[in-house]
Simulated scan of single mutants.
Amino acid sequence: MYKTTVKIDGMMCSMCETHIKETIRKTFPSAKKVTASSKKKEATFITDDVIDLSILGDSIERTGYQYLDSETIPYDKKSVFDFWHHR
Rank of each mutant, 00 (worst) to 15 (best):
12 M>W: 11
72 T>N: 11
32 K>I: 06
84 W>Y: 11
10 G>Y: 01
40 K>H: 10
59 S>Y: 08
36 A>L: 04
44 T>H: 02
49 D>G: 10
63 T>S: 11
78 K>D: 10
75 Y>S: 08
14 S>L: 10
22 E>G: 08
38 S>D: 13
59 S>P: 08
12 M>H: 15
35 T>K: 15
58 D>N: 14
40 K>I: 06
86 H>I: 09
43 A>F: 00
69 D>A: 11
64 G>Y: 01
71 E>H: 04
45 F>S: 02
82 D>E: 08
6 V>L: 02
11 M>C: 00
47 T>P: 03
62 R>Y: 12
44 T>I: 01
26 K>C: 08
23 T>C: 05
69 D>T: 04
81 F>V: 10
80 V>T: 10
14 S>C: 09
27 T>R: 04
21 K>I: 05
64 G>F: 01
45 F>E: 02
33 K>T: 10
72 T>S: 15
73 I>E: 14
60 I>R: 00
45 F>D: 02
13 C>V: 01
65 Y>E: 00
24 I>A: 04
23 T>N: 03
86 H>W: 10
82 D>Q: 05
45 F>K: 02
25 R>G: 09
74 P>N: 04
2 Y>K: 10
69 D>M: 06
47 T>C: 12
78 K>Q: 14
63 T>L: 12
18 T>M: 15
45 F>A: 02
10 G>K: 00
18 T>V: 09
32 K>H: 08
83 F>Y: 15
23 T>K: 01
9 D>H: 02
9 D>Q: 06
72 T>G: 12
32 K>M: 13
46 I>E: 13
76 D>E: 14
20 I>Y: 02
83 F>H: 13
41 K>R: 15
44 T>Q: 08
75 Y>N: 09
47 T>G: 07
51 I>S: 04
17 E>L: 03
25 R>K: 15
66 Q>C: 07
49 D>V: 10
29 P>F: 07
